[in-house]
């Protein structure tokens, strides 16, 4: 598992100012906000998250969705589901927000080297795995096959369409997209993302899988991968629930014995399989 770069203690809880450079509408309720730091950029590893602060409103934990090779342009992709995320959705270029982080364990890209890399994303779950896809493509020779399986509720709920088009045309990655339902005219597949798992070419005995989406989707994905013959220890999920302090002290994100912010957000399947059905504490 990729470990977060060490931050000085004084920086752990201090947000830095970032200026919004662009706001890209992904769907009717999801935007990607690109920001630039007022000071030095801070590197992150794919899968890590930040605490994004709308001054006067509050903070939300959001995974980075940008290319880790260019930390000077940091992106977060956000669905409006509450007060803070709604405020983030309404930001305009030029606005200043606070960001602290990055926090947590990232995707285990180094451990996947030499293996098939399979990425399964549901809905906005494509955002936290996007940095991993970009990093893997930047060092393509280190992996065997790379397959991306993307699911969304409907065609209008697909995010990063430009990336999907570009990656579909890129022979270095095998892209499969499906939606839960559609009307006629949609030329792609219709069905939940798990319907792709038995069909996509990869070697289950030599595959590492990264998956991100709603917890139920990840649970079904884990089951479908088990049925395909993938070692559960090679399946990784990212979990985000109620992160507040982001440094493992407040306990809001505790899930059974783990603190998602400190011990995750990326976990190997066996670490959390029994916890996915847990209710809020």
């Amino acid at each position: 598992m990729t470990v977060a770069p060490e931050l000085p203690v004084s920086d752990l809880l201090t947000s830095r100012p970032y200026v919004v450079s662009t706001v890209r509408q992904q769907t009717h309720d999801i935007v990607t906000i690109d920001v630039r730091p007022e000071g030095e950029p801070i590197a992150f590893v794919p899968g890590q998250f930040d605490m994004v602060y709308v001054y006067g409103t509050g903070e939300a934990a959001i995974s980075a969705s940008s290319d880790p090779a260019t930390p000077e342009l940091l992106s977060h992709t956000i669905r409006a589901v509450g007060g803070v995320t709604q405020a983030l959705n309404e930001l305009q270029p030029g606005a200043t927000i606070g960001i602290r982080g990055p926090y947590g364990r990232g995707w285990p890209l180094a451990a996947a080297e030499g293996r098939d890399l399979v990425i399964v994303a549901g809905g906005i779950g494509l955002a936290p795995v996007r940095p991993a896809i970009l990093a893997a493509l930047a060092q393509r020779e280190r992996f065997s096959r790379i397959a991306l399986l993307v699911g969304a509720r409907s065609p209008r709920d697909l995010v990063f369409r430009d990336d999907l088009d570009r990656w579909t045309a890129d022979r270095r990655i095998d892209v499969h997209v499906t939606v839960d339902s559609a009307v006629r005219g949609w030329s792609g597949r219709v069905g939940v993302v798990t319907t792709l798992i038995p069909r996509v070419p990869f070697d289950p005995e030599h595959a590492t899988v990264l998956t991100c989406g709603p917890e139920t989707m990840m649970w079904f994905t884990g089951e479908a991968l088990r049925k395909r013959g993938v070692d559960p220890a090679q399946v990784y999920v990212t979990l985000e629930r109620n992160m507040k302090c982001a440094v493992g002290t407040c306990g809001h994100c505790q899930l059974g014995p783990v603190f998602l912010c400190r011990d995750g957000p990326v976990f190997a399947w066996p670490e959390v399989a029994d916890l996915l059905g847990e209710r809020e504490l």
């Binding site: 669905r79 509720r153 939940v192 798990t194 709603p214 139920t216």
Partner: peptide, 16 residues
């Protein structure tokens, strides 16, 4: 199994 996941996707999205 697929139908149930479809339903959960729909319900969780609507609830949010």
């Amino acid at each position: 199994r697929h139908a149930r996941l479809q339903l959960v996707d729909s319900w969780t999205h609507d609830r949010r």
